[in-house]
């Protein structure tokens, strides 16, 4: 998503994202063209391609599939899965399920926010991490749990959660030192 400008509607004319992403977007639009009731599937695929829902991509979807922009916005804002801003390289999902709540998920949240210097839902300045919450990850016996890039970590303590983040930072610095800014 490096060449993608999230604010630039004018980008719709010149392209959205990389050539591969553009191709994928066209494939998705063609696949669902004329398939009634497929808007959620289309949005899920757009998000899979870009990591979020870029406005120019949604404008293309609206135009090509003949769906009103207001309706797309309405559906996209209704469901928790969809987001309008890019996420960091690593997506942290902190479970807010009942088991995690009674086992101290709020303390993990405080520790993560402090460690990453972000609020819930935000992305770090260096674009390495986005901290989001999940209703329930279904790993209740490991509570409190967080998931990073599909891998679950638990049972957590505030210190363990901080350590997981530090370990990932460490790996990032070792592999691609130039990518870690801020």
């Amino acid at each position: 998503m490096s060449c993608c400008d999230q604010n630039g509607a004018e980008d719709a004319a010149v392209g959205i994202g990389t050539a591969a992403q553009m191709n994928d977007l066209q494939d998705i639009i063609n696949k669902y063209n004329g398939v009634e009731g497929s808007l959620i599937s289309v949005l899920q695929n757009v998000q899979r391609i870009y990591g979020y829902l870029p406005r120019p991509a949604l404008e293309q979807v609206a135009e090509r599939l003949g769906i009103k922009k207001a309706k797309i916005y309405g559906v996209a804002t209704f469901y928790a899965q969809f987001r309008f801003t890019p996420v960091g390289k690593h997506l942290i999902l902190l479970c807010q399920g009942t088991a995690c709540h009674v086992n101290g998920a709020d303390k993990i949240e405080t520790a993560l926010c402090d460690e990453l210097r972000v609020e819930m839902g935000e992305t770090t300045d260096d674009r390495l991490f986005t901290l989001n919450e999940a209703a329930c990850l279904g790993c209740c016996s490991l509570a409190p749990v967080m998931m990073i890039d599909g891998q679950a970590y638990g049972p957590l303590t505030p210190d363990k959660a901080r350590q997981v983040i530090r370990d990932i930072y460490k790996r990032e610095r070792q592999s691609q030192p130039e990518e870690v800014g801020a």
Partner: peptide, 25 residues
């Protein structure tokens, strides 16, 4: 298989159907 997009209310039958039809659940 149709994938839900994260809305608790879609466990309700008529909301689930609305979601299957690509609408707000």
């Amino acid at each position: 298989i149709k994938q839900g997009a994260g809305a608790f209310v879609c466990g309700e039958e008529t909301a689930l159907i609305a979601s299957l039809e690509g609408e707000r659940g």
